[in-house]
Write a protein that binds this DNA or RNA. Structure first.
Length: 104
DNA sequence: CCCATGACTGATT
DNA sequence: TAATCAGCCATGG
């Protein structure tokens, strides 16, 4: 079940980000953005690039865990070349991943 | 099976 | 532009 979602996340190239809804659609679930978040929260593979998944506003979503993972995700993205604006969000218009037809 | 919750989204106000 | 509201549905009690 989550496998499908994880697979979609793996397809996100470094230096780009995708929204939950985008992942959901990519995985074949048009309206299940929440389930995507749920799947990530469930904890997938250790090498899962979950940090490339952000909400529709290009911000890092808050999780139940109050830990500083929010900052971690940001740093991971920055190390991949993703820039954050002063307000702390990503310019989806520039960094959102546009699935190419030759992806698979 | 019914009820509440949640890494969300899009339309309204 | 920011805050609210209503859908969405898998998961767990």
């Amino acid at each position: 079940m989550y496998e499908r979602i994880y697979h979609a996340v793996y397809r996100i190239p470094a230096g780009c980000v995708a929204t939950y809804g985008q992942i959901a659609a990519l995985a074949g679930f048009p309206r299940r953005a929440r389930q995507v978040g749920y799947a990530l929260a469930a904890g997938g593979p250790e090498d899962l690039p979950w940090h490339r998944v952000v909400n529709a506003k290009g911000e890092i979503s808050r999780r139940a865990d109050p830990a500083g993972h929010e900052d971690l995700q940001r740093r991971l993205l920055e190390s991949e070349g993703v820039e954050f604006s002063t307000r702390g969000n990503i310019s989806l218009q520039r960094f959102r991943w546009r699935p190419q037809l030759d992806e698979d």
